[in-house]
């Protein structure tokens, strides 16, 4: 039972991290990419850590895994926020709604 749960959590985590990686390649600009990376990699690491927790058992590791998850959840959004702030302030190429309707090419504004 625990083994099945461990496997399920590990596979879910890996899949979400893979989604984050694919998103970083497929999405059109920095800001859209930060969506994929911030959300998917948080949940990916989250469920990888939970998988480790169920594998090791609550007695041996205690609250350490929960602390790990807490720090991940606290730090990943900050990183994504800083990246998108820089992309917003700097003259990065970005895609806006008005442009996508007429022409799909990227343009800086």
């Amino acid at each position: 039972m625990t083994e099945a749960l461990t496997i399920l959590l590990l596979v879910t985590g890996t899949v979400f991290i893979l989604v984050a990686a694919i998103g970083a390649v497929r999405l059109p600009d920095v800001l859209c990419r930060s969506h994929a990376v911030a959300k998917a990699s948080t949940l990916g690491i989250f469920s990888l850590a939970l998988g480790l927790w169920t594998h090791l058992g609550a007695e041996s590791v205690g609250l350490k895994i929960l602390l790990t998850i807490f720090f991940q959840v606290v730090t990943i959004p900050v990183a994504s926020h800083l990246i998108s702030l820089l992309a917003w302030q700097g003259e990065q190429d970005r895609r806006r709604r008005a442009e996508t309707a007429s022409k799909p090419s990227m343009r800086s504004d």
Binding site: G23, R26, C32, A40, R95, R97, P104
Partner: peptide
Amino acid sequence: VARTVLFERRESLHP
């Protein structure tokens, strides 16, 4: 996000 990343084309996004 997974659905957007895997199945939607770039042109259908309106960021």
